[in-house]
Structures are given as C-alpha cells and as structure tokens.
C-alpha cells in the first residue's frame, strides 16, 4: 500500500515538475536524468537480475545514437537520410543487436571477467569511432541532430522533450519491473543465483544471458537516442572511457540492486555534474564525483537507495518495537 502511494506521488511529481522549475532544471537536470538514467537502468537491470556487470552499456547507447545521427543528420557526405520512424526502428534494432553481440562475447564469463571484457569492447568501439570516417565521421562525429517535429509538435522544445524523456523512462522502468516478474525474468534471477541448478532444470543458461543483454541493449538504445537529442550531437567523446565509467558510477551511486537506483543515481550524478562549480572549481568535477563514488563503494555498496532503505528499516523497526505489544495480536495470519 505504502509502495503504491509512493509510486503515485513520484509520478505526480514528475508530471508537475515542469511547472515548478525553470528551463535549465527542466532540460539539463530533468531531461538529462531521464535519458542518462535509462542507460544506467540497462546496467542496473543486468546487474540486479542477471548478476552481470557490463561496462558496455554506454557503448550500446552510442550505437543507437550514432545510428539515428547517421540516418537523420548526414554530415560531410557521411550518412544517409531516411524518414525518422525508419531511422528510429533501425537504431533500436542495431542497439538490440549490439547488446546481443556483447552478450555473445561475454556469455562465458562472470564477475570481474565480464567487467573487463565489456570494458575492452567499449574501448574498442571508442577507438573505432575515433579512427573511422566512413561510418562514424571520425573525431568530429555528427552535429546538429534535431529531434523530429511530429504534427507541428517540436519534440526538441523543452517541455515536449521533458515529457517525451519522462514517458520513455517510465516505460523502460515499468517494463523492467514487469519483465523481472515474468517466467523469463524469474529464470534470469535463477541463473544469477544458481546457474547449475537452472541448467539442470533444462534451461539454456547461455541463451538466457544473451537475451538479457539484448533487452538491456534495447533499453540502453532508448537512453542513447534521448542523450543524442539532448546534446544535438554525438562524437567519440560520447562513448569514451569517461562516459562509460559515468554510467557505472551513477548506477553504484544510486544503488545497483533495484531499478529505481538507476534514476536516483543519474539524478545525483547530474546535479553534482552541474553544480560542482559551486563546491569546487568546475575542472575538478571528476575528483569530487570520484571521491563520492569511492566513499559509496567503501561504506555503502548498495548505494544511496540501499542507504535510504536501511535508514527506513531502522526507523520503522524502532517504531515497531514501541508498538510491539499492541500489534502482537494482529500479526497472526499475516
């Protein structure tokens, strides 16, 4: 019950958000949190429900972003103009495919090995975008990528863009919450906890893992397209080591055990990113966020949401203790 009320409050808050803040907070904090958070969500989904920590999620998002840019905003002879629905479908397909391929490469590994291999994949993709001019337009990448205008509604304007981002983020979030309760999602969690037993039950463990990577790829693709439209450009810098690590940092910051941690982490990360200038010099943002990240890893491995949950439990436990004698009778049969 409390959970449903909480969800309703958050949804209402997100709907009302544009009318409470200025346009900077609307797009640069709100919109960015939604787009970036969706990429983080794909990582949290993989980690929380399959136990695989992938560092290549920003790369998959980059694949989707590059695809949309390639098909809707050709630059200097690189690219091919297609109608935007076709471009979006192609981009989502390519992102899912990229996710599946990364899954295929790393399916036989686990733990830190998955981390290393996906990082290697991510860095290989970065150097490819940097070196290659036929498909990725090298160092420059693509600029002036505008979101489409549908029936006179410019999706690039602050308010529509915010609602678009929020709607897609909500879709991905509730999608993940739903998928993990389906037989597929339960099988994934079985693979996470006891791969041998799940295999003995007749499941194809490798296939399940690859499919999870594919789904995570599609989610990351949504985030990648939103990021592209927000920045209006994409270049190798968008898939370099820093953004790749940023996804991990935001995930760990928010809490990698539950999907909501993705957006909490993305929000905190974005706020620190934008307001680090008020605490210390703007250039030292990485030092600040790195230290925060280190502190979280050292002192609260389940992130801010984990911290909040533990505090919540502690306070409710204290309340419970006080009411223990009263509630004792009602507890039976619960």
């Amino acid at each position: 019950m409390t959970r449903k009320i909480l969800t309703a409050i958050v949804v209402l808050g997100l709907l009302a958000y544009p009318f409470l803040v200025n346009s900077f907070w609307l797009v640069q904090i709100g919109g960015r949190t939604m787009g970036f958070g969706t990429v983080v969500l794909s990582l949290v989904f993989l980690t929380a429900y399959t136990g695989m920590l992938s560092l290549a999620q920003m790369t998959v998002a980059g694949v989707a972003g590059y695809a949309v840019a390639y098909f809707t905003a050709p630059t200097g002879g690189v690219g091919m103009l297609l109608p935007w629905p076709v471009a979006l479908i192609l981009a989502m397909g390519l992102a899912t495919l990229a996710g599946l391929l990364i899954g295929l490469v790393s399916v036989r590994t686990q733990g830190i090995y998955t981390l290393m291999i996906t990082l290697a994949v991510a860095m290989a993709f970065y150097y490819l975008t940097l070196q290659n001019y036929d498909l990725f337009n090298g160092f420059t990448g693509f600029n002036n990528v505008e979101p489409p205008v549908i029936l006179g509604l410019d999706l690039g304007a602050p308010l529509p863009f915010y609602y678009l981002s929020a709607a897609l983020a909500a879709l991905c979030y509730f999608g993940v919450r739903h998928v993990v309760r389906t037989p597929f999602g339960l099988a994934l969690q079985g693979v996470r906890d006891e791969p041998q037993r799940v295999r003995a039950l007749g499941y194809n463990v490798a296939l399940l893992r690859i499919l999870a990577f594919g789904l995570a790829g599609a989610i990351a693709g949504v985030g990648g397209i939103l990021n592209l439209w927000l920045n209006a450009s994409i270049s190798p810098g968008s898939v370099a080591l820093n953004p790749v690590i940023d996804v991990l940092m935001a995930g760990v910051l928010g809490g990698i055990g539950h999907p909501i941690g993705a957006y909490v982490g993305a929000f905190v990360f974005t706020v620190v990113d934008n307001f680090a200038i008020d605490f210390i010099a703007r250039e030292r943002f990485n030092t600040l966020i790195g230290l925060i990240f280190l502190a979280i890893v050292l002192f609260s491995p389940d992130g801010l949401t984990g911290l909040a949950r533990r505090l919540w439990r502690r306070t409710t436990a204290e309340e419970k203790e006080g009411r223990e004698s009263v509630r004792h009778g009602n507890e039976v049969g619960k």
């Binding site: 920590l53 991990l248 030092t287 790195g290």
Partner: peptide, 19 residues
C-alpha cells in the same frame, strides 16, 4: 570481494586522472 575492489580502483583511477 573482487568486484568491489575493481569498483574501488575505478574510483581511484578517476580521482588520480583528474589530479
């Protein structure tokens, strides 16, 4: 805790690179 150690060294590398 190998994964946690890897994450901690990532944090260190970010701070070190920036400094």
């Amino acid at each position: 805790q190998d994964l946690r150690q890897a994450l901690a060294t990532i944090g260190v590398s970010i701070v070190a690179a920036d400094l």
